[in-house]
Design a protein around this nucleic acid. Structure first.
Length: 482
RNA sequence: GACCCCAUCGUCUAGUGGUUAGGACGUCGGCCUCUCACGCCGAAAACAGGGGUUCAAGUCCCCUUGGGGUCGCCA
C-alpha cells in the first residue's frame, strides 16, 4: 500500500479564509489518520496577484491553527522547493515534453486575434458566452516567426469523455466536446495553474487532491494532462463551498473571512477547526470534538456534497464549549495578550487570575471575554461603573455593606462555602434578604453589576481586599446624595 | 445561455426502502437564582413540487423549480 500524501495548495493572493481552512483541515485530518504526509505548497505563479505578505499570512494562519505540515515552506522536504515560482524550469521541461509528444503546441495567435474571434462569435450567436477559440496552430500552421510571442496550448480531445469517482461528489462524467485547448504556458514562460498543479502533484507523489469544488471544471483537463505525461492519476475530493448566511458567496461583509481575525477575537484554534469540520461533515449526533477525535473519526464519505452556510451563532457556541474544556492555568496563559491589549499587565501564573477563571469560564465565550471579565480580579482598584455606583451605592446601601463586613470579617476559611453559610445564618437572624445586600456588594467588589457569585468573588479576592473594597464603597455610598 | 454540482426544521445535520423523521445552534416558555451566565425541563420548527419504480419512498429513477459553481494568457 502506498503512503498517503495530500497537499494544501493555496495561492498567496489574500488571507487564508475559512473556506480554505476547511479544505486544508480535511486534508490534514486524512493525512494524520492514515499516517501519511501533509504537504503545503504555495501556488504563486501569478506574479501580478501573488504577494509575499499573503504567503506569510497563510503560513502564520496554518501555524496558529496547528495544521502542521510535513513538507513545505520553512520545513523543506524531499520534493522541494515548495513555492511554484521557484520551480519554473521544471514546468518548462514538462511543457517541452508535451510538445515533443504532440500533446501540446505553440500557439502564436495574438490576444487581438482571439478577441476578434470572440467578437465574431458574439455577432454570430448573439451571446458572449460559450466561446471556444480554435487555434490555427493546432493543426500545424507554421508561424511567420517561430520566436514570436506565443503561448503553449494543450491539444484537447474533441470526442469522447473523461470520468472520475470523486470522493465527495461521486462519479462525474464530462464530455470532451466542452473542452478548450487550454493554455499551459504564458508568453513570458510562466506556467498556468493546470500545468503547474499537475506537474507538482505528480512529482510530489500526491495520492489525493482535495480542493474547493469550484475547481471541478479543472479536473478533466488535469486528468488528461496526467495521461499525456504517463503519470498516475490521483484521487479527487471536491469540497463544497462555505457560503454566507444568505446563501451568497462569503465575503468580508458577512464574517471575519481571514482566519487570523478569529485569533484576535479570542477564538481557540481547536474551536475554529471544530466548527469548520462540522460544516459539511458529521459523526452521528456529536457536535464537539477534540483534535485527536477528529483525526480518529474523520472520513471523506461523511462529508456532505452540498454547500453550507456560515453561522456565527453556532460558531460562538462551539468556541464557548472549547473554552470550557481548558484548564485554568492554560486559559490564564492564553489570555495574557488580551489583558495587554487593555493596558493591563498580568502574569500567566497570577494566582488570583487562576483562581477566578473557573468562576469566569461559564460566563465567557472568547479569551477576550475572559480577560474583560477578569479585570477587577487582577488590578488593585477596579474601575467603577458610575451608573451602577449611583444606583446601588446609596446611603441606605452603606448600612447593608456594614452588615456584610461584620458578618464575613472573621469567617474561616474565607471561601465560598463558609461565607455563604455565615451569611445565610446572619441574614436569618437579622431578618434581612440577600437581595438587598447583593447588588451593592457586587458593585463594591467588582465595580460592575454582573459577576460570578458574590462569595466566589470574595474567595478569590481574599479577606483583606474584600474588606478594603467594601470599606471604600461605604465611604463612597455615605458621601453620595440619594 | 452552455456545462457541472447541489436540495431534510431559520442554520449545521442524522437518516442508506418500513422511524411518532432524531440531534445541535438559534428562537420561545419555564426551573434554578444575590446579578449575569452555566445548567436543567419543555415548545414551535423540515423531507421544494410533480411524475414514476415498489406491498411500502425523505431514502431509487425522471422532469420541473430553486440555489451554487465554472465558462481567463487567475487559482
Amino acid at each position: 500500500m502506498t503512503q498517503v500524501r495530500v497537499r494544501f495548495a493555496p495561492s498567496p493572493t489574500g488571507t487564508l479564509h475559512i473556506g480554505g481552512v476547511r479544505t486544508a483541515l480535511y486534508s490534514y485530518l486524512y493525512a494524520r489518520q492514515k499516517g501519511g504526509k501533509f504537504i503545503l505548497r504555495v501556488e504563486d505563479t501569478d506574479q501580478e496577484r501573488s504577494t509575499e505578505e499573503s504567503s506569510a499570512v497563510i503560513v502564520e494562519s496554518m501555524r496558529w491553527l496547528g495544521l502542521d505540515w510535513d513538507e513545505g515552506p520553512e520545513v523543506g522536504g524531499p520534493c522541494g522547493p515548495y513555492f511554484q515560482s521557484e520551480r519554473l524550469d521544471i514546468y518548462r521541461e514538462y511543457a517541452e515534453t508535451l510538445i515533443a509528444r504532440g500533446a501540446a503546441y505553440r500557439c502564436y495567435a495574438t490576444k487581438e486575434e482571439i478577441d476578434a474571434a470572440r467578437e465574431e462569435h458574439f455577432e454570430r450567436t448573439g451571446r458572449k458566452e460559450g466561446f471556444r477559440f480554435e487555434s490555427p496552430y493546432r493543426d500545424g500552421k507554421t508561424p511567420d516567426d517561430p520566436n514570436a510571442r506565443h503561448v503553449i496550448r494543450f491539444k484537447a480531445p474533441t470526442e469522447g469523455m473523461t470520468a472520475w469517482d470523486d470522493l465527495i461528489k461521486g462519479r462525474i462524467e464530462i464530455q470532451h466536446s466542452t473542452l478548450q485547448d487550454f493554455v499551459l504556458v504564458r508568453p513570458d514562460g510562466m506556467p498556468l495553474y493546470n500545468l503547474a498543479c499537475v506537474v507538482d502533484d505528480h512529482l510530489m507523489g500526491i495520492t489525493l487532491v482535495a480542493r474547493g469544488d469550484d475547481h471541478m471544471i479543472n479536473t478533466v483537463p488535469q486528468i488528461l494532462l496526467y495521461q499525456a505525461l504517463g503519470a498516475e492519476v490521483p484521487a479527487f475530493a471536491h469540497v463544497p463551498m462555505v457560503l454566507a448566511p444568505n446563501g451568497q458567496k462569503l465575503s468580508k461583509r458577512h464574517a471575519a473571512v481571514g482566519v487570523l481575525e478569529y485569533r484576535d477575537l479570542g477564538y481557540l484554534p481547536d474551536a475554529v477547526l471544530n466548527y469548520l469540520v462540522r460544516l459539511g461533515w458529521s459523526y452521528g449526533d456529536q457536535e464537539i470534538f477534540t483534535r485527536e477525535e477528529l483525526i480518529e473519526k474523520f472520513s471523506w464519505d461523511r462529508v456532505g456534497a452540498q454547500a453550507s452556510r456560515y453561522d456565527a451563532a453556532k460558531f460562538s457556541y462551539v468556541q464557548a464549549e472549547h473554552l470550557r474544556m481548558l484548564g485554568a492555568e492554560e486559559l490564564a496563559r492564553l489570555s495574557v495578550p488580551f489583558f495587554a491589549r487593555r493596558g493591563v499587565e498580568v502574569k500567566a501564573d497570577d494566582p488570583r487570575l487562576i483562581a477566578a477563571i473557573p468562576y469566569l469560564k461559564p460566563r465567557a465565550t472568547t479569551l477576550d471575554d475572559l480577560a474583560e471579565a477578569a479585570l477587577y480580579f487582577v488590578v488593585e482598584e477596579p474601575e467603577m461603573d458610575e451608573k451602577a455606583s449611583k444606583k446601588f451605592l446609596t446611603p441606605a446601601a452603606a448600612e447593608e455593606l456594614r452588615f456584610l463586613i461584620d458578618t464575613i470579617k472573621d469567617v474561616t476559611p474565607f471561601d465560598d462555602g463558609a461565607l455563604s453559610a455565615a451569611m445565610e445564618a446572619a441574614l436569618e437572624t437579622a431578618g434581612k434578604a440577600m437581595k438587598s445586600v447583593a447588588q451593592p456588594a457586587r458593585v463594591a467588589l467588582t465595580g460592575r453589576t454582573r459577576s460570578p457569585g458574590l462569595f466566589e468573588v470574595m474567595e478569590v479576592l481574599g479577606r483583606e481586599t474584600t474588606i478594603a473594597r467594601l470599606e471604600r464603597a461605604i465611604a463612597r455610598a455615605e458621601a453620595s446624595e440619594s
